[in-house]
Write a protein that binds this DNA or RNA. Structure first.
Lengths: 253, 253
DNA sequence: GGTCACGGTCTTGTATACAAGATGGTATTC
DNA sequence: GAATACCATCTTGTATACAAGACCGTGACC
């Protein structure tokens, strides 16, 4: 088994430099209102990781994050532990934190579990006495060509929602929760799939075909289409990620 | 959908009384060595919940736990957040913590996901070019009758290990991790299944049959047996749990 | 007698101070 | 010149002090 890791551990990001970092900035009053500071820091840091403002392998300390967000270490630590538990970052005992390097073996396994869960969902949906309402999905993915979105960011969100909706249709909230966790862990590479217009089109086509198969209760067809769809996406995303990481490194170097 | 909840929110456990509580006691030097305090508190509290020293619905505060364990609130909070994230306890904003009430709807869903994952594992194992080595399982579950364990506690552990081993045989560590999380969440009721000698025997029989089916690559048979096995266990456990909870309440009242 | 307002108390949320271990550079020794 | 021991510094781990919101009982008022 090849353990294929990507990351940079050779240097920290803007450590102690005078330049303003591109990532996390002080929390304003408005942002933290209604939610606690730990939750806000958590959300912000997660965004920073997903948006590649914090690159895989980047090292940082609790004090750094605390200073930049303008809160104390206590809520920062709470946020960091949550992110660690979800597999986004890691702590080295008394030696700082770092964003987990991209590990394609890990992503393979996660995509594999995704397939297991989604195919099980298809199975259950097709075996229900009556197919559950999937109106919202139909409105989005079976819409005429000219109503399709072209911007990658919202399409990435719709894509996640499509697959989560399939799971949700089983009526099992725990399955949804587990699936959602997986979705969040692969998001960092998955969203890159929607930076190419051709891939967006292809996603629309494939989702439409899958949806039609489910609605007409052709389980075998739906299963095959969905499995292929996920595997194509996985391969595509892997290719793009390697390219993007190379670019990001070149830019920050 | 009937939301069937069991718990007691009417009174806290030994709150402020002079009597020594049955649950969590001060952490000794030896226990905390090599691990951090938060981890120790986490483990101890989880045990207390599993052993019914802390009953579903029981309320408690961070200060209480801190006093009893002899550590400060900081590591206690870290432990509590971990337990909360794993679904064992819950915090009510600025109003204390409580052990999550038993929710059989939730357990139904978790058992359902269990079935999905285990059947997928069977599928993958049976489709492998060569069946992976399951020597340890064979040694335990295909052993002669007189070598069977009779004490429920170790059998409960072996049972968990049996099902986790099936998942592990797929070679997907993420699936194992997810499965393990589910195992921990249903453990509180599942281990009660092994308090009856008849159920221990039945488990041995069923595991043996499942194992033989897998080894002879009879996928359909293995699938059916495993599915039935899990569903029987689920029903049995539900029955016992309600009985035990009744007893525990009567005793503490 | 019932209802609403108010304040004390309890609980979590957050900030800060201190402790202990890990790292890396430097000086010393062979 | 290389290796090793040591110390300064940095980082997390833990304890404690303080802040803010929620709950509950009490008292006044209608």
């Amino acid at each position: 088994m090849v353990h294929f890791e990507c990351g940079r551990s050779d240097h920290a990001i803007l450590k102690g430099s005078g330049a303003m970092p591109t990532w996390i900035t002080p929390i304003s009053m408005k942002q933290s209102q209604k939610r606690n500071l730990a939750g806000t820091v958590y959300t912000r840091l997660k965004e920073d990781i997903f948006e590649f403002r914090l690159l895989p392998g980047d090292r940082f300390t609790e004090t750094e994050v605390a200073l930049r967000t303008g809160v104390s270490r206590t809520p920062v630590r709470e946020a960091l532990f949550r992110l660690a538990r979800e597999g986004h970052i890691e702590v080295v005992s008394r030696n700082g934190w770092h964003v987990k390097p991209l590990d394609f073996t890990l992503f393979d396994h996660l995509y594999d579990v995704r397939i297991v869960l989604e195919l099980a969902a298809i199975d259950r949906i097709c075996k229900m006495v009556e197919t559950p309402a999937l109106d919202e999905l139909e409105a989005i993915w079976l819409a005429p060509r000219d109503q399709r979105l072209r911007d990658g960011t919202p399409v990435a969100g719709l894509d996640e929602a499509f697959h989560e909706a399939l799971i949700a249709a089983t009526g099992n909230p725990e399955m949804v929760r587990i699936f959602h966790d997986i979705t969040e862990r692969i998001r960092i590479i998955r969203r890159l799939d929607f930076t190419q217009p051709a891939r967006i089109d292809q996603t629309y086509e494939e989702h439409a075909r899958i949806l039609k198969s489910i609605l007409s209760r052709k389980q075998d067809q739906a299963t095959l289409l969905l499995k292929t769809h996920i595997e194509i996406s996985k391969a595509e995303v892997k290719k793009i990620t390697l390219h993007r990481l190379y670019e990001a490194r070149a830019q920050s170097a």
